[in-house]
Write a protein that binds this DNA or RNA. Sequence first.
DNA 1: CGATCACTTGAATAGTCTCAAAGCCCGTGG
DNA 2: CCACGGGCTTTGAGACTATTCAAGTGATCG
Lengths: 247, 247
Amino acid sequence: MKTLLQPLLRKLETTFALSNDELAALHALPIKVGEFAKGEQLVGEGDRPIHSFAIQSGLTCMYKNSSTGRRQILIFHFPGDFPDLQSLHINVLDMSIAAMARTKVTFVKHQDIRMMYARYPRLGEALWRMSLVDAAILRERMLNLGQRKAFERISHFFCEMVVRSKLAELMVDDTVPMPLTQQEIGDALGLSNVHVNRITQELKEKKLMEVRRGRLHVLNWKQLRAAADFDATYLHLTPAQKLLLDR
Amino acid sequence: MKTLLQPLLRKLETTFALSNDELAALHALPIKVGEFAKGEQLVGEGDRPIHSFAIQSGLTCMYKNSSTGRRQILIFHFPGDFPDLQSLHINVLDMSIAAMARTKVTFVKHQDIRMMYARYPRLGEALWRMSLVDAAILRERMLNLGQRKAFERISHFFCEMVVRSKLAELMVDDTVPMPLTQQEIGDALGLSNVHVNRITQELKEKKLMEVRRGRLHVLNWKQLRAAADFDATYLHLTPAQKLLLDR
DNA sequence: CGATCACTTGAATAGTCTCAAAGCCCGTGG
DNA sequence: CCACGGGCTTTGAGACTATTCAAGTGATCG
């Protein structure tokens, strides 16, 4: 039971130390577990959810469709993230969330979250802060989308995936999980799958990184970052997390 | 004094009725007035502000620069908006905000905002909600940026400007203020000024809209919306506001 | 009235997309 | 263990969208 919110608790504790009471309140939250296969939708545009959910394992994406059937993936969420916080305060969803790999989540009723932070306001602020960091990620991705050429754009995307995977403790030997198809990466970057393919090959030729058997292998982190114009400020890491990254 | 927060109060009251106590708390906020000329920066990347500010009149933009000196405008803010709420909970700014026209703002110390919503939690939720709606706007703009061709992209942009201007009570006779240069519109849409120019002419030829003497004239709202694939859901309007739009 | 800034126009070029076909990988069932 | 099938990746060619550069026009302001 206790372990179900583990990734979320770890994430919360990186920004501030939780008191025993606050920890107890979090553990006391009634939760429900859900498991989703790759491609399954968790919530959709137009829904009025009464739950939010934290990711326990796996990967989800938030996306929107244009009326012409094109899909823009807005942001990915890792274990410890709380993708759908906005539905706490906005009734109708304007986007959808789907699993990009086998994913386990823990559902928490809005009502229970509200009661929790009415009692412990700092927890409310922590959640608010999480939603603000998500917005910061959206902003950086918007800069990426609007101003960078495909090569830097894709490099930047992979940099973000590497860093956020590392923060979620998913990095092993300079590799992180990469369950996405090139089509999906294209949907996230506003590029065609064909173009993603070509640039990805270029990254491999230049020995910056490569994708093999569902994992992204970082071959030259320094150069990859440089190629991407990647500066992690927008992720709003703690000093400890920043240190972790350089290793 | 009372009138300085007027546009903000009006906006807050559209989402829920404020009690007398809450209103009093808002009016009791110590504020400081600021005025900025077009082009002036209000806050910048790397700053650690101790204030946030509400817009009283004018127009601001939030933007980020890439290391190659290109600028992406992320979102514009109108009277009643609270552009820099994120600095309440995230110390270091990852973006900048500048005035896009002569703009008056009212500064409020973070400390005072925190004290206010500690006492009146609903006001905190209202602010939280405002930051979530901003995130929703970012998401729609991201769909625009990533998936739509220049023609729809620009149409969509103008639709958003028209609707949000109308909500801020700036619409007069099917026109809204348009202080932006084509270069600035390009920075917001990831397009060159030249291309913006060409498409804008096309919109004019097709009699959908035109820009004259600092104002955007809507010539055919229905067709403009259709061309833009514009659906205002993402703005999370109240029923009353939706009604307003159709007139 | 001159200077400045924004808008307009044209031509050449660069970047990315679409379409279509072929190759590869992996899981499945025989 | 092998053959098969489906989905993903790879490759090539041609078309299209948007960019850049550069020059010219128009409007506004002191």
